[in-house]
Write a protein that binds this DNA or RNA. Structure first.
Lengths: 340, 340
DNA sequence: TTGAAAGCGGTACCAA
DNA sequence: TTGGTACCGCTTTCAA
């Protein structure tokens, strides 16, 4: 049993396909007699007809769909981005095509190409492998196709970027100010290209304070919550152990928090923990997490707005929205006073 | 600057459109001379041509897209479902169209209708408002369209359901066995239709133990983390306060955990907390959460597999996969011993 | 081995 | 106020 088409409706109502189209689309500029409209509508509901969005899209040129590429569905920070995007595009009558690359560089490039086939009205990308995806991206954006990236790229497309420089300097100053001199860094990021400036500021702050950079205190882990746990375990096994842990995101910080607890250490009395993202749960953890707020939800909303606006006005110049991350101090950081 | 079409490639390569189609699709059953293929491929890359997926879909009948409807993007449980689905469909070469209804009954029904227009190859639905969405759903599934629901419905479609009965009875027995007689229930669920059996078992267990059902101990809250926090605050304000809190999901449990902490109570010494879902973070919270595992990731995978299989074999009988939720006891529950 | 042409299900212009 | 029809970009017979 096939789905009914416009023709089926037309036949049943005894009108032409054009008339069905007029009635169904409700275009007010084509006058249709009340009587005809009635008949068509009856046929529509009788057959349970719904126009084929693909055909409409093919003909009209737009698909009412926005594509979103996310590196990793495990990280709550990305969820909040998705939320922001989904909300915003939906408000404007668009649907969301979601793709994740599972942090696989090959897949990221492939996916970019695949997305191009779908002729969506716009694309929102949180790229992880900038170098690798460069060609595909520039190709996509070449003809003024609405694309916005949420990564700190230098590509010639609209961008919404969270800038971590200042906030990272602040969190380091905060920790240093509390007397911490051995600050571990759990750097579990999908691709190192991504958070380089946070790493840079971490190191600058250390040397700026006259401290040496101890490679043993930097742990490159995976992106899963247990990776954060394991990284923290490794770091805590150092002697002397770090008295503060900077964690690349809240998700891993949860794992770190657990590891710390299992080692019989209290936060913040024995060890301080600070992280990035400040996702919704950060304030509710035990203890509430000191975190650098990057506000994924807002990033998502901004990105969606930008790209939706570009659909309307293709002539717009390239825009670059900076959202300053902001340090939120809670109870997971405190004065250094552990005997070691 | 428009995107190049098949015709453009054909013209540049000096062949017919059909030939381009053959080469691009790489269909081995149509022999193409190496020389021609070469020419076409060169034209393709020169023009940067990518076939229009909408046209392909319109013509060939399938869209390689699976739709997923989720009630609430805030709840991590749903995220794990999304993950499972996304992974699975992607493995099979499908894309994912994600829609959330933000727990709005009207939107749920509308969305269902809208999804129907898109002629996706299959639909995976986690409905919240069963009664309200009934018509739209049955209409959708009417013609053997591949639909699977993750809700405990009686509709005549494939279903993957987590059954909570046994596990809920177990968790109640667990709490009761620990000596708790005042067990609060934070019931922050999008739609009450959904978790009725958990509520039923909660009440049955109470009466089964010779305990009265105290309506003051049941808090109907919202689905956000702060709703869990507020609900717990309200419950803790009762006199005498509950000595255990059963929370409808991990997300709200995080909020509850915080509220408990702010009241100066220790978990589990002063109060026990147990919840549902056992999302990834449950084991890492402080203390690790006793939770009923419903395994969203697995639910998502199963649902996707089911529906993908149905695409292949439309004749399959309706299937109903039950996944038994399973009690995972951790450190957030302990013996009742508070002086009150 | 390649090309011509008929659709897939709509939209929108032009005529009637 | 309604109908005829060209076309969106592709796939797939059928012929050549």
């Amino acid at each position: 049993m096939k789905r009914p088409t416009q023709s089926d409706v037309a036949r049943l109502a005894g009108v032409s396909r054009a008339t069905v189209s007029y009635v169904v689309s409700g275009s007010s500029d084509v006058p249709i007699s009340a009587e005809t409209r009635e008949r068509v509508l009856k046929a529509v509901s009788q057959l349970n007809y719904a126009p084929d969005a693909r055909a409409q899209s093919l003909r009209s040129g737009d698909s009412n769909t926005v594509g979103l590429l996310i590196p990793d569905l495990h990280n709550p920070h990305y969820w909040s981005i998705v939320q922001g995007v989904e909300e915003t595009v939906r408000e404007q009558g668009y649907d969301l095509l979601l793709t994740s690359t599972s942090l696989d560089p090959e897949r990221e490039a492939q996916t970019l190409a695949a997305l191009s086939s779908r002729r969506m009205d716009a694309l929102i990308l949180t790229l992880s492998f900038l170098e690798k995806s460069k060609t595909a991206l520039t190709r996509l954006a070449a003809n003024g196709y609405p694309v916005v990236t949420l990564s700190n790229t230098s590509f010639n497309v609209d961008a919404v970027v969270a800038t971590y420089r200042t906030a990272t300097a602040q969190i380091m100053a905060h920790l240093l100010g509390l007397g911490h001199t051995r600050i571990g860094f759990i750097f579990g990021v999908g691709s190192k290209e991504l958070a380089t400036n946070r790493m840079a500021v971490y190191q600058e702050s250390l040397t700026g304070a006259g401290l040496a950079i101890d490679p043993d205190l930097i742990d490159y882990s995976g992106p899963r919550i247990e990776d954060g746990y394991n990284a923290a375990q490794r770091l805590l096994a150092r002697a002397p152990r770090p008295t503060a842990l900077l964690v690349i995101n809240d998700w891993l910080a949860i794992g770190a928090l657990r590891a710390v607890g299992e080692n019989g250490l209290r936060v913040p009395e024995d060890i301080s923990i600070a992280s990035f993202d400040d996702t919704e749960m950060a304030a509710y953890l035990n203890p509430p997490l000191t975190s650098v707020r990057s506000n994924g939800h807002e990033l998502g909303r901004q990105a969606a707005s930008l790209v939706l606006e570009r659909i309307q006005k293709p002539g717009l110049p390239i825009r670059r929205v900076q959202i300053e991350a902001e340090l939120v101090i809670r109870q997971s950081t405190g004065r250094e006073r552990s005997p070691l």
